[in-house]
Design a protein around this nucleic acid. Sequence first.
RNA 1: GGGCCCGUAGCUUAGGCCGGUUGGAGCGCUCGGCUGAUAACCGAGAGGUCCGGAGUUCAAAUCUCCGCGGGCCCA
Length: 1019
Amino acid sequence: MPYFKRETQKKDFLRLEEDILELWDKEKTFKRSVDQREGGDKFVFVEGPPTANGLPHPGHILTRVVKDLILRYKTMRGFYVQRKAGWDTHGLPVEIEVEKELGISSKPEIEKYGIEKFNQKCKDSVFRYEKEWVNATKRVGFWIDMDDPYITFENDYIESVWWSLKEIWDKGLLYKGHKVVPFCPRCETTLSSHEVAQGYQDVEDPSVYVKFKVKREAEESEPLYLLAWTTTPWTLLGNIALAVHPSHTYVKARVNVKDDGGAKDKEGILILAESRLDVLEDEYEILERFAGKDLEDLKYEPLFEYAKIEGGEAHKVITADFVTLDEGTGIVHIAPAFGEVDYEVCREKKLGFSQPVNSNGHFTHDIPPPLEGMFVKDADRLIIDMLTERSILYKEERYLHSYPFCWRCGSPLLYYARESWFIAMTTLRDNLLANNERINWYPEHLKYGRFGNFLDDIEDWALSRERFWGTPLNIWICSDCGQEYCVGSIKELREKAKTPVPSDIDLHRPYIDDVVLKCDECGGDMRRVKDVIDCWYDSGSAPFAQWHYPFETEKFKHNFPADFITEAIDQTRGWFYSLLGVSTAVFDVPPYLNVLSLGHILDENGVKMSKSKGNVVDINVLFETEAADALRWYLFTTGPLTEDIRFSAQAIREKQKKFLNTLWNSYFFFVTYATIDEFNPQEKNMISVEQRNAMDRWIISRLNTLTKDVIAAIERFEIHVAARKIEEFVVNDLSNWYIRRSRRRFWIIEENFDKDCAYLTLYEVLVSLCELLAPFVPFVTEHIYQNIVRGISEDARESVHLCDYPSPDKSLIDAELEASMEFVSKLVEAGRRARSDAGIKIRQPLKEVVVICDRDKRENVERLTGILKEEVNVKEVRFEDKVLESEFAVSEDYKRADVDEETCLFLDCCPDKNLIEEGLVRDIVRRIQGMRKDIDLEYTAKIGITYACDEEVKEAIHNFSDYICDETLAVSMEEGTPTPSSSEEETTGSEHIYEKSWKIGDKAVYLAIKPLHSLAEKD
RNA sequence: GGGCCCGUAGCUUAGGCCGGUUGGAGCGCUCGGCUGAUAACCGAGAGGUCCGGAGUUCAAAUCUCCGCGGGCCCA
């Protein structure tokens, strides 16, 4: 009875993978792989939660398989690796999807529809594609616990988030301020940067040069103006200051207008940057030059007197480094209500604030007619006219620039200051930087590059969103005394509430909005601020909120900080930052110690995949034709994971062909012969490596070297280096050299020590290789393992994924042997080159090859000359010293080929009659083997041979008949005559006889084979 | 507009930190060979402005600067 299950040579990997998925399911292999390591060292991983309200795309598949690889590897290395799945469920994108569905697009419409119903819709929608996500995750073999995931909308999760915000609140880092945000006046909605980025268009806007009149103590004859430039005239209603660069040079220039016809506006003394004098259209005279800082605090008259200004000074010159001289006049109009930098600089300089525009983009009632109630973008023309009338418009131009529009309704966006709650990240900058120091970034440049730079210029975190579906901001304000209170738990909420809180309260809006707290100060009613929080804060809280910390402490204690996280590069300022930000604010420690940033998956033309371009690869379609292992291997080997990948289904198929098929065929070769021979590794495992031949020791040495290199590469997260090394090993070393070179050892029929060595070696290599490859290609390795390990041993672990990762055995690494083998293969190459040059095919045996090389090189190679003989097909290999080189070089009998700088070889190119006969016979054997294969004969089937040929060939056949019979499993060889119908190169299949006429060189040879009974019943 | 990354044969890429024979592979192509595990493999050949330009140097794919193209993030 054979010990192994036979296989078919062509494998349907898709079917194989489905079977393996069933096996894992049935045997709960994933759970067991984790559980059996309990008590081992922890390797902590945090899943970056995807949103399941859209379909997973190839990029998600990449991160999933990379996570899987690392986690499987660490598990096999003995670490206890818990893998909790997670779902990101809140946020504006979710709301927008629901709005689309409901056919509405503004906040008032949502309120009219009902927040309760709206949020329920949001909640329902976030798992709309959960099934697809779960399926895709399973299908690629990503082992993660999706039965018990963390979900950011669950009360436990929200409660942990609340706790963390209260920690931040208690540290005094949570404050209320203004934030200038991109805002759609029609939808009355703040847009996320992602949405803004979608809607840029090139448009022409008015660009105006406005003269701000400088206030002066004594009335002088000539008025002095600051010349400022803006492309949004309507924002002039919110002007608070003018900014100049402190160190650039400015001038006072008197403009001389020759022709006074209607050009009165241009007269006067203007202040502007010297390098921007080009903007003046008239002749001028420089009166004075000075640095920008000399202008500081210079007061000017407000353009408009309408707006209320609160909280500080206004209408003076300030200095700021952000002022550039690329365009405009070097004097920048500052309106804190409409620009982020404007707002920041006013806050810094303690200037006032004015908001002349209401939330739907119209001027407020503070602004008198005709501007009152007008939509700001429509007001530009009118404002320009007003300025002209008052002679303070220097000139007007058109200006082409890209400006953002609402991607939903097409309205121009306004940058608009809204009230917002902030986390004071700027005060934590040093802590952020210190914590970043402790993180290993892959690729390294991110640490001080994109991420480090970002931290250097960190801004306060605008936490609140005036929206509906999100974690409610846990701040209550007393309507009587204005006292603010931050609630840190559900328990606290109950204690503080004026009316009983339902036991099953959903912490979302609108329910939470109904909870009124009692003010500690005055006993008044405290109501929650209406905001929800940025969903990035949600996911940034995952390290503790997924364990409901601190309300439950045990799990968190052992799972923080994370040893490893990985996501794509776009998360640098996304999740990678929100994790660090939250953790630094709450715990002041880094939340992860190693972070691997992956490149993006681009389409085959190198362009980003996006819905609008229609170039997104549908992974469901992909999985109908491509095996998960092939896809994984493609992703792992194609290049550094930290760089973008051009996605190509064609390349996946090539990977399957090159790697998976070769791996499979190596395995197939083994089981095929091991089955025939009923080889059982358990009976032979006492043969030590030292007892085996050089080829066996070589492949074992290579395997151990490989193991060492693979582990080192994975530890550096150089996945492609590890995978490529394995691929080289499988394709070159194992398949194309070891197995090809060792084939004959497996063909021997009798019991034989050398054959046992070969079997055992190949078996051991395959088993180790399976273990080594298991994290990369979990399906096919499992299949192989099930057959060749678990299939023969009750004691074996039930899955390759329950095994330990191989560790290199240094005592089995023989660097000298590996080097020698490399040298031999170079000799073989050179030998073949010499044959090719001489026009002698390899099947023709030759007398000898003479290798001219150094003594020490020779010593290492001499033990491997058998290989050289066979590969080059010569009877002898001779080594000679350099001094004899010239002797061979002049001989016409020898063909020369260079091996390396110091080594060359000479091939004897004069076969004698005997050798020529042997060559002929080898050709015949080759034809017969081909014929056996043609008719799919069993490997062991015996045949009878009939032949017809000329005398010369006949003599060769006679002389080598034993050889022919041995090679082709023939029991008889008889002369015969071709059947009349069989002409040259044409075959006839009469009963059990297969015949064919051949041309070998210039000889015509007729061959017929007749299968006899199978050899399975051995003689 | 700013920051970071990438650009090597038709395609996928090695090399780049640390400059030094003629820039290596694989797929594909042409020719020849080999083959009872492998739609595999081996040998030879065609195919390169190493994105472009400038600089440093005895010497640049490699270092520096300026562009161009792609990607990401921020405006």
